[in-house]
Design a protein around this nucleic acid. Structure first.
Lengths: 91, 91
DNA sequence: CGGTATCCAAAGTGATACTG
DNA sequence: CAGTATCACTTTGGATACCG
């Protein structure tokens, strides 16, 4: 729960869940404002916690894909109702 | 979402939801460690946000009850699956 | 009983610049 | 493209003491 309380954490799970395998740039683009340092460390947190997987391809230009693990998928499902509701009340 | 990301916020909603009208002391007792200043300010946050109501009775000794508002109740329902799951993985 | 006031330490975040 | 390093800044939370 402490991890989920960090900024963008819950949203990140759902964004990755929605996009499917998601590249760093796509994730970055899904948020209005977030510095690369913050986004990076939050992604690391979620990978370390076992909610996201990170796959790096040895290509030029580099490509990295994040995806939900099974745990992450389960978490995403449980976050859905909360985030939907939160999004609605933004207005 | 920023509010919910503050420490104890999500748990507080569910604790109050579980106890029904809950007195300050009961809420305090539901947490292992939390300073009164922190708990107070978090309760205030949730009252201000419209998720909790606060009723103060002019008695001696003083009695204060917190309860979910309709919004808080809806929020509580949406938090349930998340917190249940989080509780399970504590082990 | 149910808090508030004050002060402080720690954590989180972002801007900027740079790298493989 | 996908980050990391550094550093300064802001926010948060906790300890302690006290109040209506």
């Amino acid at each position: 729960m402490e991890l989920l309380s960090r900024r963008y954490a819950m949203q990140l799970i759902c964004v990755v869940g929605a996009i499917g395998p998601a590249r760093y740039g796509e994730i970055d683009g899904a948020f209005e404002d977030v510095s690369s340092s913050t986004l990076s460390s939050r992604l690391d947190d979620l990978v370390d916690a076992g909610y996201l997987s990170r796959t790096q391809y040895a290509e030029i230009p580099p490509r990295v894909e994040y995806d939900l693990t099974d745990d992450g998928d389960e978490l995403c499902r449980r976050l859905q109702p909360l985030l939907e509701w939160a999004a609605d009340r933004e207005q």
